[in-house]
Design a binder for these strands. Structure first.
Length: 822
DNA sequence: ATAGGGCTAATT
DNA sequence: AATTAGCCCTAT
């Protein structure tokens, strides 16, 4: 480090390249390109970096999946000679001299069959600290010349004291408790010997999968703990120097000891990304470095809200600390904010189980992975990850939904519980997790093992205190995981409803922002997630984080209204399209007409908001038989009850309160094969018998079904709460398609005084209608009674007049009289 | 339920 | 702009 202090810019390059080189997923070619960009480095400066790069190259060359023949490998090995005393640089040079690189790559080399294996391991183990690691160490030691500068830099003030303090605090207040850590350390000590081997085995398995996605997903299991955010800001390490990774903007700082910085400590460091990579723990560094772009993307997409707000976390110098934590559970890992590179890869050092868990960790996000059976499946890590993320966000979270806290609660409760158990079982060799003892009573016997991967809970059924929780596949979930899973399911459902609602909102505002298909996709994705959640015990927590924040939705709704009320002039299309629909419907004689009624229902205060769409399909043979090709028949589609009294008043109230217009998404045809006089009157007063046949459940079921299956693109006209404020022109445009509803104005005003009354669309009287009207008037007029029994006439008119109201008849007759009765 | 006045989109 | 047809609102 000292040697580097005099050449800041070069040093920065070295930092970057070294750090990047520690990322397995950073392709060597990228490193190569980077090297090209680096200004001339003094020989004494970049040696470690070059060595690291060379090692990377070797690792690539002798990658696990190359499948070269043993002979070829041995041949090469004999030529090159993997002398431990040689530097990677030298060996690599030899290799390049002996063999064409491309040929080598083509042929591939099987690490396990080559002498390169121990060589690389050895070199890994001997690799000096990353420069950044050294820098950090020196800063922490207070020996670095910039310490004073750091102490006084920036508005956030003293970084160093915070770091140091954080380290102390970690030891004192680590969420996972020192005991736990100690316990873990012991275990790790025992396991350390096998670490390298374990790592390589796992790494090989990783690499054996050619699917980059799978790899990325798998690696997430390893690296997620070190991946915090791509939004992380570069941190100025001192007043003049800063490191910024242009692409990811990830600051890499080697070394991590205070892996459990408390929030306040992290505060000043939140822009620093730390990737642990102690020189003597290179396996860890390698693993931790596995952050591919798609990894980032994956994580970001999965945890959008977290990834952008998560403060930077960790200074964990001792992967072993972290490892020990990991061993107990990823939750704890997260709890301790141990985001160093070692990650879960080192978590399990319990022989077979570790591998097993790794595999399932991979499976978690890699359903296509080969083995889906058997061992526990990883689910907690993600949960814990997010939980922790949210913990770290204290006070900054934009998502205050209770479930997060619910999961966080259970997360901490679980940690606490496990910690207490760990405390009681200080010695790993006697730990219940090792001896298959009930974590409650510490006795053996037939135990229920939580199906959640990384959840160590094993318990007697009797010790549960309640009936065990099994999923559909008969998998048992411990109370913690069962609870979290339930929350996840709830969230999925919630989001589903939210999305459906959003979808409808967008649908109503057709041609605006987002196409329904997109939302449908998201919805499907969430459903998939839920399925996976069930399958893997994965605690799906990012349901809302993805798309469906209520607030977001609310914004959507508001935007919609805003558009409707303000920008209606630009939205002639909806109504125009409505008209088109009308035209179509008029011209076609539907033997069967689908009518859709949108009813907004909304649970109160934080509950699921949903739009309920009732789809009623009824045949109308009468219509088809009697009015083939007749325009009038199409008017049957006119009556659209919206926000009607038959809708639960409460719901209506909320609809109106939200000032959401919920027009039918398509002209509604109210056809009732049992239509008689009563029904006719019903129909004209906006009462749709169909809706009464649908229970709420049916409604809700149909909501999603229709939303998903039929993201109709048909335009919708909205009942606009602001229509009164709209000009005539606007009002015209927002006319509901085809004689939508008849809503007693007064009633509507009762619930929402400002609610406008949209006019029905004019429907010209047909000759037939006029004729039957005249007939009716003639028939029912009573010279003694000046009043004309329009209702009787309407009934008399039957289907011919079935879209008309008594008032219509009266008005029409008035018109006819004006013109002169014919 | 009905009558009558008024409103408004469409048409002239 | 005037007219008209259809729809809406209110009073009874």
């Amino acid at each position: 480090m000292d040697e580097a202090s005099g050449c800041a810019s070069s040093l920065a390059w070295i930092w970057v390249i070294e750090a990047l080189a520690s990322f397995k997923e950073v392709d060597v070619s990228i490193l190569h390109d980077l090297i090209e960009m680096v200004p001339e480095l003094p020989d004494n400066l970049g040696k470690n970096m070059r060595e690291m790069l060379a090692l990377r190259c070797l690792e690539v060359l002798f990658g696990p999946s190359n499948g070269i023949t043993k002979d070829g490998c041995s041949s090469l090995a004999s030529k090159v000679g993997f002398d431990m005393s040689k530097s990677c640089e030298d060996v690599l040079e030899h290799i390049v001299q002996e063999t064409s690189l491309s040929d080598l790559k083509m042929a591939g080399l099987e690490l396990s069959n080559c002498n390169a294996h121990p060589f690389i391991i050895h070199k890994r183990a001997c690799m000096p600290k990353l420069a950044l690691q050294q820098l950090k160490d020196s800063l922490l030691d207070g020996s670095h010349p910039y310490v004073d500068t750091l102490k006084h830099m920036g508005p956030k003030g003293n970084v160093m004291p915070r770091i140091v303090e954080g380290r102390k605090k970690l030891l004192e207040n680590n969420l996972c408790t020192g005991i736990l850590l100690d316990s873990k350390r012991k275990r790790n000590t025992l396991a350390t010997e096998n670490m390298d081997e374990d790592f390589h085995e796992n790494r090989n398995r990783l690499d054996a999968c050619d699917d980059p996605n799978i790899n990325a997903k798998r690696q997430k299991q390893f690296a997620s703990s070190s991946v915090q955010s791509r939004e992380v800001n570069p941190v100025p390490l001192n007043g003049t120097e800063s490191l910024e990774f242009p692409s990811e903007r990830v600051m890499l700082v080697a070394g991590t000891e205070s892996c459990g910085l408390a929030k306040d400590q992290r505060g000043s460091l939140e822009e620093v990304r730390v990737l642990g990579d102690n020189h003597d723990e290179h396996t860890a560094s390698m693993r931790c470095g596995h952050i591919a772009d798609d990894e980032f993307n994956h994580i970001e997409s999965d945890i959008p809200d977290v990834s952008t707000t998560m403060p930077l976390d960790t200074f964990g110098d001792e992967p072993h600390q972290k490892i020990s934590v990991d061993e107990v559970g990823d939750d704890r890992e997260q709890c301790a904010e141990l985001r160093t590179s070692s990650g879960p890869l080192l978590v399990k050092t319990r022989g077979n189980e570790s591998q097993c868990d790794y595999e399932h960790q991979f499976q978690l996000k890699a359903p296509c992975s080969a083995s889906l059976n058997g061992c526990k499946q990883k689910i907690i890590a993600h949960e814990a990850e997010e939980n922790m993320d949210r913990c770290c966000e204290a006070g900054t979270s934009s998502d205050s939904e209770g479930y997060h806290y619910g999961n966080i609660d259970v997360f901490f409760e679980k940690n606490e519980f496990l910690s207490s158990q760990a405390t009681n079982s200080y010695d790993p060799s006697t730990s219940w997790t090792f001896q298959n003892l009930c974590m409650k009573c510490n006795e053996g016997g037939q135990l229920l093992v939580c199906s959640t991967s990384n959840c160590p809970v094993m318990v007697h059924e009797n010790c549960l205190g309640s009936s065990p929780s099994f999923d559909n596949n008969g998998k048992f979930y411990c109370p913690f995981c069962a609870y979290s899973l339930s929350i996840s399911e709830y969230l999925v459902a919630k989001k589903k409803a939210s999305l459906a609602r959003k979808e409808l909102t967008l649908f109503l505002g057709m041609g605006l922002d987002q196409k329904p298909e997109e939302l449908t996709k998201t919805l499907h994705r969430d459903e998939d997630l839920l399925v996976k959640s069930r399958e893997n015990g994965y605690l799906e927590e990012r349901v809302n984080g993805q798309t469906g924040h209520d607030g977001e939705h609310a914004d959507e709704v508001n935007n919609f209204h805003c558009r409707r009320s303000v920008d209606d002039k630009q939205q002639a299309e909806p109504s125009a399209l409505c008209d088109n629909v009308n035209s179509v419907l008029r011209e076609e004689e539907p033997a069967e007409i689908t009518r859709t009624l949108n009813v907004l229902t909304e649970e109160k205060e934080g509950q699921v908001n949903s739009i309920q769409v009732v789809r009623v399909v009824e045949g109308d043979n009468r219509e088809a038989a009697e009015h083939d090709g007749h325009n009038s028949s199409c008017r049957n589609t006119d009556v659209v009850p919206v926000n009607q009294s038959h809708v639960e008043e409460e719901l209506q109230q909320e609809v109106l309160e939200q000032q959401i217009a919920y027009p039918p998404d398509e002209p509604v045809c109210v056809h009732d094969t049992h239509a008689d006089g009563e029904n006719l009157s019903c129909r004209n007063t906006g009462v749709i018998p169909g809706i009464q046949r649908h229970s709420k459940e049916q409604i809700q079921q149909e909501v999603s079904e229709q939303q998903i299956a039929e993201p109709t693109e048909e335009p919708v006209c909205a009942l606009d709460a602001y229509a009164e404020d709209i000009s005539e022109e606007e009002n015209e445009k927002s006319i509901i398609s085809n004689y939508s509803k008849r809503v007693p104005k007064q009633e509507r005003h009762d619930t929402y005084p400002a609610s406008p009354q949209l006019r029905r669309k004019k429907v010209p009287w047909t000759a037939e209608e006029e004729e039957i009207l005249k007939e009716g008037v003639q028939k029912f007029s009573n010279t003694n009674d000046r009043n004309i029994p329009w209702k009787k006439i309407l009934e008399f008119g039957g289907d011919v007049l079935h879209i008309r109201t008594t008032v219509d008849l009266k008005d029409k007759w008035r018109n006819l009289c004006k013109v002169g009765p014919r």
